[in-house]
Design a protein around this nucleic acid. Structure first.
Length: 318
DNA sequence: AAAGTTAGTCAGCGACTTAA
DNA sequence: TTAAGTCGCTGACTAACTTT
C-alpha cells in the first residue's frame, strides 16, 4: 500500500467531498458539516489540488460533477461506510462479521473439532472463514505476530502474554490393529510392546518431524534404560492410522471418548503397561495472545470452540 | 518563545437567476 | 430591463496548533 501518497491526502477532505457530491452546493454542504461557505469553498479548493481535477463546474446556481467526481461518487460511499463501520463501537454481530481466523490444531483433534465448528459457524457466522493448520515454527511467536489467532496444544508453561483455556483431558493409550497379537490380551507389559515397531505420530502442532526427536514416551523409556523401534514418524493422521491398520506397528496416542477414527479404522486401544510410568491424562488447551483478549470476534470464537467441545462431552455422557 | 502552518470567519466581489 | 437574491471565490484577518 502506498502510505506515502495516502499520508499527503487529508482523509477528512473525502468527507467534505461526499457532502458536496450529495448536496451539489458549496453552501448546503457547508451547512451539513457545520462550517461556513467560504471554509467549504477552501476545502473544495484543496480537493481540486489534491485530486488534480476541477471536480465540479458551475452552471448557474448548480454545481455539475466532472467525470472524475462522478466516478468518485460511485466508490466513495462504500469506502466511507467501511471506515464508519471500522471505528464504530457497537454490539458484535457474528452474523455480519466478515474475516479469516487462523488456528493451529493437532490433526487428530482437528478431525473432530473443525467439522463440528464449521457446522455451527456456517449458520451463525457465515462470513467467518477458518484457516486451519497443524504446523508452526513457534506457537508463541506466531500468536504474538498475528500469524495465528489461536492454537490448540498440550498444556505447558508459556509466556505471560499467552492465555490458555482448558479444553479437554485425553488418556494416553497404545493403539494397534484388530487381530494384532496383543489385541486380545487384557493387559500388556512393557516387554511385550517393545517387541513391535512403533509409528511415532505427532500429537501436537509441530513444523518438522524427525525420528531423532524424542516424544515423551521415548524420554520415559530412556529413564528406564529401554528404547523402542520406530518404523514411521509422521504427523499425518491418516497415514499413521492406515499404517497401524495394515501392520503390526503400535502407536502411542491419546483417547478421547468415541471418536471418528474408531468408526473408520479397525483399531484396538490398550491402556499403558502398568510397569511403564505415565501421566494419567494429557490436557489440551486453547491458546491466544493478549492482543486478542478484548477482540469481540476472538472472545466469541472461544465460546464457540468450548461450546462445541462441551456439546461433545454431553453426547459422550448421554 | 518565536515563527510557521492550518483551518476557520468576515466582508466583499463577480456571475448568475428570478421576479416585477 | 433592472433590482434583489443566491452562489462560489478570494483577501484579510484570527485562533489554535506545531515546529524550531
Amino acid at each position: 500500500m502506498n502510505l506515502q501518497k495516502l499520508s499527503r491526502l487529508d482523509l477528512n477532505l473525502l468527507v467534505a467531498l461526499q457532502a458536496l457530491l450529495e448536496e451539489r452546493s458549496v453552501t448546503r454542504a457547508a451547512k451539513r458539516l457545520f462550517i461556513t461557505q467560504p471554509a467549504m469553498s477552501r476545502v473544495l479548493q484543496r480537493l481540486r489540488q489534491q485530486l488534480d481535477d476541477p471536480l465540479f463546474t458551475r452552471s448557474g446556481n448548480e454545481l455539475v460533477a466532472t467525470p472524475k467526481a462522478q466516478d468518485l461518487q460511485l466508490r466513495l460511499p462504500a469506502m466511507l461506510d467501511g471506515i464508519l463501520a471500522m471505528i464504530s463501537v457497537g454490539v458484535f454481530d457474528p452474523a455480519s462479521h466478515v474475516g479469516e481466523i487462523t488456528i493451529a490444531v493437532p490433526e487428530f483433534f482437528a478431525i473432530s473439532l473443525v467439522s463440528r465448528l464449521i457446522e455451527s459457524l456456517s449458520v451463525v457466522a457465515p462470513g467467518v472463514v477458518l484457516s486451519v493448520s497443524s504446523d508452526t515454527d513457534s506457537v508463541e511467536r506466531e500468536l504474538a505476530e498475528g500469524i495465528l489467532d489461536f492454537a490448540i496444544d498440550i498444556d505447558k508453561p508459556l509466556g505471560m502474554d499467552i492465555e490458555a483455556t482448558h479444553l479437554v483431558n485425553y488418556s494416553p493409550s497404545i493403539w494397534m490393529r484388530e487381530g494384532h497379537p496383543l489385541a486380545e490380551q487384557h493387559s500388556i507389559s512393557l516387554d511385550e510392546i517393545l517387541e513391535y515397531p512403533f509409528v511415532q505420530y505427532y500429537l501436537l502442532i509441530a513444523k518438522r518431524v524427525s525420528a531423532r526427536t524424542d516424544a515423551r514416551f521415548d524420554k520415559t523409556l530412556r529413564k528406564l534404560g529401554r528404547k523402542r523401534t520406530k518404523a514411521l514418524v509422521t504427523k499425518q493422521f491418516m497415514t499413521a492410522m492406515e499404517t497401524i491398520s495394515r501392520s503390526n506397528c503400535l502407536m502411542v496416542a491419546a483417547r478421547y471418548g468415541h471418536t471418528i477414527e474408531e468408526n473408520t479404522y479397525p483399531i484396538v486401544r490398550k491402556g499403558f503397561p502398568d510397569d511403564l510410568p505415565h501421566e494419567q491424562t494429557i490436557t489440551l488447551v486453547l491458546l491466544q495472545h493478549k492482543r486478542t483478549f478484548e477482540s469481540p470476534i476472538h472472545c466469541w470464537l472461544v465460546s464457540q470452540i468450548t461450546g462445541v467441545i462441551m456439546n461433545k462431552e454431553a453426547q459422550k455422557v448421554g
